[in-house]
Design a protein around this nucleic acid. Structure first.
Length: 806
DNA sequence: TTCTCGGCTCGACTT
DNA sequence: GAGCCGAGAA
């Protein structure tokens, strides 16, 4: 280690032994298991500052990866404070932002231009839909949403189209692979990358081009990763490529037995050895791994020592946030998980108030109770900005918002419909995207008839087909619309659009600022005028949103003009950077600091990494939390970790509520308390809580088998049973199910493999979470009865009784 | 051919 | 409550 002067020693003041050990770690792979509230951000910031101050690395040689842009900004600021100087040159960003930045430089090697567009989930879905339609797939069975999800999973596991095709068995998988192939081709043709591509293509470019790999391996002498428990296989591979010895001979996670690097193009391994710096420090908590649905792999953190030989492991187990009662509660819940690293969190913050559980008669009363408690705590001096209401799904925020409004309390909602996801904002951004990247057909299709210009789906289809046939962009087609086979009316409409596009392109080429270009779009197209002339009261809000976007663009222009010129700036326009930053902003990035004096409402996922004096966890009902689809898919451990995340956000006050009746979609339904409530340790709860738990634990008796009159109860058992009857005589075993199989995981696997999947219906009802003891579900002509076992898990206990002539 | 309207279905978490 | 589809009007 370099000489440690007194100046550097200062950085170690106030750290506990474990934190200090992590900060001064001499080098090589390091895993810091950081329990909730154990000061991991401190460790990360001090580590970066330590590396710089002891001369082990300059700022420009450090890459720090965080989970959100906001966390990145915070990290950067705190490092700046510690060092007492500018942090220019330090790479601190999300995986996606870092990859986007690399791809802006390297994209041309892979057949994209530097102006490539980043597709968000919505854009991706639209493109998937178009591909499915063009391939003649049944989009009712293969919904764009589900298919996009499967494609995303392939990509996050770094499976190429070819690899996915090799593994595909059965009609279902093959349809997915066909969609994957078509979708990927369209992305390239559109000069666009989706979120997964940002990671995957960066891995590609590093694997295929030794000189590129060498450049980035040398550039980052130290790599630090926050929230490591939520990294996916693609991110894991990226870290291998950046840090480890001979990365081309290491097997990526989940790629099967074959080692990577055998590239058909002959790129790949260097002839000689590639020694890596191996300075990889990862920080995380396996108990807080909650992004499995995004293909995060908890094995990354559980298997770190095997993956990175002679790694050092440091545990941070002292919690500086919560009272002992809150920690006991969280510890008791997470103890029900099997797959985890054992740890004992402790605190010296004192016992604290008991945790409270309340059962309320319905969702309205629940909201009012929570708001009443917020008022009470506010009266005791807890600032509103130090209180949060958390829930599993965004839909639960509405009633709490209403109650807060009635009580005249200020609040902010994080998440829900993102600002950048609003239709009018996306329209405006799509204009910008298309002006910059005319190959972007998703943006083109979005804006060509918005505002209405008399260019309908038929015309758009012809234009796109014509462009594809010629191998040109839509921009090159609209100037001669007659060539695409359009009639006079459509020709005139498209002609007007072409004139507007030409005018806007001229404005862009003349070097207009982003804000001015945006303004030109809204004016030239008549977009704003139409909204302003509208009688729809919602359109007023839309105009406001566009004004807000304009203000955002102005702010961007000002900051961008003042920024330090570097290599990236030399080759990219401000508009490029603007679109990139808007594409990668997330909900959590909008969260304002607590000091703003407003109650915060958000999902449990968005609450990761935050803390509040008082936390209310509402909607603790089976089917909501844990979510019915998670129960169905056998993802209870992840739901439990989500619960752990929620509980550990609280410093002093923690309350959990459930409603006996709740109207979520449609009329109010009776609810059952969350199974997680039963895992809370009674010793930590107040005296009223047990009552709230004993409420309705007994399963409600239900008819064992009912067959409704057609249409009497949509989604009911009757509707599932109707219309089946092919594949007679199949047993549970034929369906890949056994007595005691968990509904959903096995059922889904069976459905995926079976050629006869269209008639497979186990879980159709289960997935909606509205079934109970004694319910009957039909699988082809088999009938399966649902029972609760001792653990309260829903399982298939018996499969019998041929269902004849339904 | 485009647009509007009523009836239908379908509902997680997110870079 | 929002998005999609088909029917019918412009």
């Amino acid at each position: 280690m370099a000489a440690v002067d007194a100046h550097a020693e200062e950085l170690l003041l106030g750290l506990n032994d474990q934190q200090r050990a992590a900060v001064v770690h001499p080098g090589g792979p390091l895993l810091v298991i950081a329990g909730a509230g154990s000061g991991k951000t401190r460790v990360l910031t001090h580590r970066v500052a330590w590396l710089v101050r002891t001369g082990q690395a300059s700022l420009g040689e450090i890459l720090a990866v965080t989970f959100t842009n906001k966390a990145a900004a915070e990290l950067r600021e705190r490092v700046g404070t510690l060092l007492g100087r500018s942090t220019r040159g330090l790479w601190v960003s999300t995986f996606h932002s870092a990859c986007a930045r690399i791809m802006r430089v390297e994209a041309e090697r892979l057949g994209y231009t530097r102006q490539f567009t980043i597709y968000d989930a919505d854009d991706a879905k639209r493109l998937v839909k178009r591909v499915l339609e063009s391939q003649g797939a049944d989009t009712r069975r293969f919904t764009p949403n589900a298919v996009a999800g499967r494609i995303s999973e392939h990509k996050n596991r770094l499976r190429s189209v070819e690899q996915a095709a090799e593994q595909a068995a059965g009609f279902y998988d093959r349809t997915i692979v066909d969609a994957y192939r078509g979708y990927q081709a369209q992305l390239v043709a559109n000069n666009a990358m989706d979120f997964d591509d940002l990671l995957g293509r960066t891995v590609d470019v590093l694997e295929r081009y030794p000189e590129v790999r060498e450049r980035y391996r040398n550039a980052f002498r130290h790599v630090l990763v926050d929230e490591y428990q939520d990294t996916n296989p693609a991110q894991y591979r990226l870290l291998q490529l950046l840090c480890m010895d001979d990365p081309m001979h290491l097997a990526p996670r989940d790629a099967g037995a074959e080692a990577h690097g055998a590239d058909p193009d002959g790129f790949g391994p260097l002839a000689g050895e590639e020694p890596g710096h191996r300075n990889l420090m990862v920080v995380g908590d396996d108990a807080q791994s909650i992004y499995g649905f995004r293909s995060a792999d908890i094995r990354n953190i559980l298997d770190f020592e095997q993956d990175f030989p002679d790694a050092e492991v440091i545990r941070l187990e002292q919690n500086y946030r919560s009272t002992q009662r809150i920690l006991d509660t969280a510890n008791a819940v997470i103890a029900n998980n099997r797959d985890q690293r054992p740890k004992r969190l402790w605190t010296d913050q004192g016992t604290g108030d008991p945790v409270r559980v309340r059962a309320l008669p319905d969702d309205h009363v629940e909201s009012r109770w929570v708001v009443g408690e917020i008022e009470r705590l506010a009266g005791e001096g807890v600032p509103l900005g130090q209180m949060a209401v958390l829930y599993r799904t965004n839909g639960l925020s509405r009633l709490v918002e209403t109650a807060l409004t009635q009580a005249d309390l200020a609040y902010q909602v994080i998440g829900g419909v993102r600002f950048f996801d609003r239709a009018e904002v996306k329209d405006a951004l799509a204009y910008l995207q298309w002006l910059l990247n005319p190959a972007n057909t998703v943006a083109f299709a979005r804006i060509v008839n918005r505002p209405r210009r008399g260019i309908g789906d038929t015309t758009v289809g012809r234009l796109l087909a014509h462009a594809e046939a010629l191998g040109v962009t839509p921009l090159q087609v609209i100037d001669e619309p007659a060539a695409a086979g359009l009639k006079t009316a459509a020709v005139r409409s498209v002609g007007r659009f072409a004139e507007q596009a030409a005018e806007l392109r001229a404005t862009m080429e003349a070097g207009a600022t982003v804000a001015d270009l945006l303004e030109a779009i809204l004016k030239v197209t008549g977009y704003r005028a139409e909204l302003e002339a509208s009688s729809d009261p919602l359109d007023e809000g839309r105009v406001e949103n566009l004004d807000q976007l304009h203000a955002f663009a102005q702010e961007f222009d000002a900051e961008d003009a003042a920024a330090y010129p570097d290599e990236e700036r030399a080759t990219l326009r401000p508009l490029d950077r603007f679109l990139q930053s808007t594409a990668l902003l997330s909900d959590a990035d909008q969260a304002e600091e607590a000091a703003t004096g407003r109650v915060t409402l958000m999902t449990l996922h968005n609450a990761k990494g935050l803390e509040y004096d008082a936390v209310f966890l509402v909607g603790c009902e089976d089917g909501i939390f844990p979510h019915s689809r998670a129960i169905d898919a056998g993802e209870l451990e992840e739901e439990r970790r989500l619960c752990y995340v929620g509980l550990t956000r609280a410093r002093k006050h923690l309350a959990l509520t459930w409603a006996r009746r709740r109207a979520l979609y449609g009329p109010p339904q009776p609810q059952v308390p969350s199974r997680f409530l039963r895992e809370l340790p009674v010793e930590s709860l107040d005296e009223q809580s047990p009552e709230a738990l004993s409420g309705a634990v007994q399963p409600t008796p239900r008819p064992r088998f009912e067959r409704d009159a057609p249409g009497a109860r949509s989604g009911g058992i009757g509707s599932i049973a109707r219309g089946r009857g092919t594949g007679a005589g199949r047993s549970l075993a034929d369906l890949g199910l056994r007595r005691g199989s968990e509904i959903g995981s096995a059922g889904r696997a069976a459905a995926a493999d079976a050629e006869a999947a269209p008639t497979f219906s186990v879980g159709a009802r289960v997935r909606h979470g509205k079934f109970g003891e004694g319910d009957v579900v039909a699988a082809d002509d088999e009938v399966i009865v649902v029972h609760f076992d001792d653990h309260g898990e829903r399982r298939l206990i018996a499969g019998f009784a041929r269902l004849e002539a339904v």
